[in-house]
Design a protein around this nucleic acid. Structure first.
Length: 926
RNA sequence: GGGCUUGUAGCUCAGCAGGUGAGAGCGCACGCCUGAUAAGCGUGAGGUCGGUGGUUCGAGUCCACCCAGGCCCA
């Protein structure tokens, strides 16, 4: 007879192999059909809100692993909160304006920016952006991210744009917006000003020149005639704009006699400069502090203009001469120090980087040629002391990769000074996670200069300002702004470009300065950071399901300078506080060596590949497994590891499901009092799991969730509990109290696990959910299931301590079994009879358990010897448990065909001669 | 160069306010099982806690410096 038919062996259709790449799309369809986002929102109506405000990714290109990390983290947080007591809406958004889209649109569509109509061009840009919104939306959905994908927010939407110019108007009203001539990064190729965020540093070869400026008035400190101040620069083309030479007030400067000329340089640097100039005969004839030299007048060697000695702390001794050529039109530090001395801001260049007539003989030359011409002229005039080239880090345009310049132009600025103190105070009200984020943004805001909002481009929100044609006065007030907001709401910001100024101003507008009635409009558009920085107002205040401020912003740590900062600025300027209560940041992606992911290193991981090969849940598990507060590593090896971990979790769940095929939670549930002790132990472990994991979710520490759950599955369940209870599940009568007791634990466990895992393994838990025994009111989706609560009645510290010790003994026994396997060819542990020789303390502990020991060790017989009995010399002893010796022998009797235990009782039952007493009884009972 | 930050076994992470020979899981090696089976179980080998120098009776844990990374900025 085949007795295996009489066993309660595991039974399930839940597949062992996940086959995620195929299965996930089906589940996505299921969510879509059931409109799961809507259902969850409905179910959570009225609960306290938890609002995570999505930072809008840029609608350009496919998503990469960085997006993946960010969006999955957000999804984990949203799903956790929506399961555990909150109404947690998630409205995704996209950043849709800006130069990169403009350039891609030009490139992809073969547009000629100058030939095409502005509105038409903007429409093409819009189409391009929307195309990528759709692409990215599908890609984000494929990750299992749940949100209001049908109603995302887009910075190009009319309503959004209307609110954005409202913010601008508000800031203007408070006097935070001004027009200034200021050096900004300027790309001569793109012909636009660039924000600091739009330049990147890279190596470049530049000329390196030493130039002598003749002194014309030494203020009586030394003889002017024949004296020169020596400067060093890597940008000869800026010399025509030179108006000053900066010295450090506290440095020592010396006057060095060389032939019949005298050169002024920093005392610490003159030797190396003279060496470079190959001058060996010289003599120091005088010394001054920088402060003493303030006001000395030189002559610009190129232009008919003076160059005055000024003082600045920014002067260093690292390179050059300690005398810094200063052109306020071409450098920020120069500009700032120049302001203190009321120096003119000269910038004799046009948009394309060609000198204007203001540059005299250099007019018309491009900067590169300007460099050569300047050097040549200096040489001709005898002012050039030395010329060579150096390689150094230099800013480049992030789009076209051309080197950028500093150039003073008319720009609209937001004055950070206007609300800096408020911003700093607002920062302190926010909870920054990790805490150092506060220092980072605080220092940044404390030191940042004014925000240049102007962009000389077309794909963006126009700066909503009019000018009086008669007197040139700029006009922006409540009337113009609200009128424009109406127009924008109706027609979008395209209306600004489609209509003449006369058709954009509110009726009856008069210039407040001269009463003029003719206007022209500003042509600059806003920095895209102003777009996304307005999202808190444009999104949180306009949607009924949201609210202001947000509970949480969650982005990469680079956004301290980006979105966190721009959002803070617009919020503080208009509302006086930060738009977020908490800001959580994650690190960046690196490979296993900790190096950043880059095309040149070839170490990138494409999320699409991972999804295709392993599934999105593996990607989600990867996100959960990493401590994302620091940099996050990704590599094929790491993904493989997560695949293994995934399988362990999946198979553990499968085993639980497979042993519940005949369990009805309504009828078969066993109470704690009736449970076997080891089952109570497992229930206790489960409660502790719920507690730890819930706390970890609360703390946003998902790697703790991952490790805790994985460890629970691998150790507590798979290696210990499940292994031990197999005999009971399989061989005991199906409806016996013992088997139902174990099944009750399995049912509780899978119910808890599937919920705890739902924020992370979005797809797999949905699949598991379908295999759980149906109960009244079971929701269609696990995402609608509640969060497990710790059941205090199962917590029992004494029980835990007791089982820690039992498992310690078990650990020694398994080692003894292993030795027996090696030395005696034991094989299956059920072949063994284990003899325990404990000391008296351990004996007292084990004695009450004697009957259970064989089961716990998964052997056929366990014999507990009294403390008096001497263990045979061959017995196994473990150092870590000195009170115990273990002897392993072959178990006496025959192997029972049904339960595989070896027992002397096999053969005694006439009906079942190949079964042990226990199995025979089970069959008779059935 | 500046601001912020990271560096514990091959990998992902623990190491609580400094104190018995540094832990877990995975992976790996070897073995067992074949009633979780493209599964399950066991045993074992892996670490100068980035480096150096300090403080201390005692440091992975405090301080300084250095090295190698990361984000942002010059």
């Amino acid at each position: 007879m085949d007795y295996s038919k009489t066993l309660n062996l595991p039974r399930t259709d839940f597949p062992m192999r996940a086959n995620l790449p195929q299965r996930e799309p089906e589940i996505l369809k299921f969510w879509e059909e059931h409109d799961i986002y809507r259902q969850v929102q409905e179910a959570n109506k009225g609960k306290p809100k938890f609002i995570l405000h999505d930072g809008p990714p840029y609608a350009n290109g496919h998503i990469h692993l960085g997006h993946t990390l960010n969006k999955i983290l957000k999804d984990i947080i949203v799903k956790y909160h929506s399961m555990n007591g909150y109404d947690a809406p998630y409205v995704p958004g996209w950043d849709t304006h800006g130069l990169p889209i403009e350039q891609q649109a030009i490139k992809d569509l073969g547009l000629n920016r100058r030939a095409i109509d502005v509105v038409e061009f903007r429409n093409r840009c819009r189409d391009y952006a929307l195309k990528y919104v759709n692409i990215q939306r599908e890609e984000f959905k494929r990750l299992g991210v749940r949100g209001d994908w049908e109603h995302p927010y887009l910075t190009l939407e009319p309503e959004y744009e209307a609110i954005q110019i409202g913010i601008f108007g508000e800031m203007a009203k408070k006097g935070y917006i001004y027009k200034g001539l200021k050096p900004v990064y300027w790309c001569t190729d793109c012909e636009t000003a660039l924000a600091e965020a739009e330049v990147e540093y890279g190596e470049r070869r530049s000329p390196s020149i030493y130039v002598k400026f003749p002194v014309v008035d030494a203020r009586g400190l030394f003889e002017a005639e024949g004296s020169f101040i020596v400067i060093w620069t890597t940008t000869p083309w800026t010399l025509p704009a030179n108006v000053a030479i900066a010295l450090h007030p506290e440095f020592k400067y010396v006057l060095v006699q060389v032939g019949d000329e005298r050169y002024l340089m920093a005392a610490e640097l003159y030797r190396q400069v003279l060496e470079l100039l190959a001058i060996k005969d010289y003599q120091v004839v005088a010394a001054f502090t920088g402060a003493e030299l303030e006001g000395v007048l030189c002559r610009n060697p190129l232009m008919d203009r003076d160059s005055v000695v000024i003082l600045g702390e920014h002067v260093t001794l690292e390179q050059g001469t300690g005398c810094v050529h200063t052109a306020p039109g071409h450098g920020l530090e120069d500009y700032e120090v120049g302001m203190r001395y009321n120096l003119p801001v000269l910038s004799p260049l046009d948009d394309r980087g060609h000198f204007t007539p203001e540059a005299g003989q250099f007019a018309g030359l491009f900067i590169e040629d300007g460099n050569k011409a300047v050097v040549k002229e200096l040489e001709a005039r005898g002012a050039l002391l030395h010329f060579s080239f150096i390689k150094h880090q230099y800013p480049h345009c992030w789009r076209c990769k051309h080197p950028v310049i500093f150039r003073a132009t008319e720009q609209w600025f937001a004055s950070i000074d206007g609300f800096r103190q408020q911003a700093l105070a607002a920062i302190k009200e926010v909870k920054w996670i990790p805490a150092w984020g506060e220092d980072r943004i605080y220092n940044m805001v404390a030191e940042r200069s004014d925000w240049c909002i102007s962009r000389q481009r077309t794909w963006g929100v126009p700066i909503p300002i009019f000018y009086c044609v008669d007197c040139g006065k700029e006009i922006i007030n409540d009337a113009t702004i609200s009128h424009l907001q109406e127009l924008f709401r109706e027609f979008g910001s395209n209306v600004w470009f489609a209509r003449e100024a006369q058709d954009l101003v509110p009726e009856g507008l008069k210039c407040p300065a001269c009463g003029g009635r003719e206007f022209r409009k500003e042509t600059d558009i806003m920095d895209v950071w102003f777009d996304s920085g307005s999202s808190h107002a444009a999104v949180l205040t306009t949607r009924p399901e949201l609210g202001w401020p947000a509970d949480l912003y969650l982005e990469g740590s680079d956004q301290h300078r980006g979105w966190f900062n721009s959002s803070l600025s617009t919020a503080v300027a208009t509302r006086g506080r930060a738009p977020y209560r908490q800001v959580l940041t994650h690190g960046f992606l690196v490979d296993e060596e900790g190096r950043k992911m880059s095309k040149s290193l070839g170490n990138g991981i494409d999320p699409a590949d991972v999804i295709r090969e392993k599934g999105a849940d593996v990607l989600r598990l990867w996100v959960a497994s990493a401590d994302y507060r620091r940099d996050v590593a990704a590599s094929p090896g790491i993904m493989q590891q997560l695949t293994e971990a995934y399988r362990k979790i999946r198979n553990t769940c499968r085993f639980l499901l497979a042993n519940l095929y005949d369990y009805d939670p309504e009828k078969d549930r066993i109470s704690r009092e009736e449970m076997l002790e080891i089952d109570r132990w497992a229930m206790d472990k489960l409660q502790r799991l719920v507690g730890r994991v819930t706390q970890a979710y609360e703390d946003y520490e998902f790697h703790v969730v991952y490790h805790t759950i994985h460890n629970f599955c691998a150790v507590d369940l798979s290696a210990v509990y499940l292994d031990i209870i197999k005999d009971r599940l399989y061989t005991w009568p199906a409806a016996s109290r013992g088997r139902r007791s174990a099944q009750t634990v399995l049912y509780e466990t899978i119910n808890v696990l599937v919920r705890l895992l739902t924020p992370i393994l979005a797809f797999t838990t949905e699949e598991i959910w379908r295999y759980l025994p149906a109960t009244p009111g079971k929701p269609v989706s696990v995402q609608l299931a509640g969060w497990p609560q710790v059941q205090d009645e199962y917590l029992d510290d004494e029980l835990q301590a007791r089982w820690d010790k039992i498992l310690q003994v078990r650990d020694v026994v398994t080692r003894a079994l292993e030795r027996a396997r090696q030395e005696q060819g034991l094989g299956n542990s059920l072949n063994a009879a284990v003899h325990l020789y404990p000391d008296s303390g351990l004996y007292r502990f084990l004695q009450p358990l004697e009957e259970e020991l064989a089961t716990i060790f998964i052997v056929s017989l366990a014999v507990l010897h009294s403390p008096g009995e001497e263990a045979p010399a061959t017995a196994f002893a473990a150092e870590d448990l000195p009170g115990l010796k273990v002897l392993v022998e072959m178990a006496p009797g025959e192997k029972c065909e049904r339960c595989w235990m070896v027992s002397p009782t096999v053969g005694r039952d006439t009906d079942h001669p190949t079964l042990c007493k226990r199995c025979a009884a089970v069959l008779r009972q059935a």
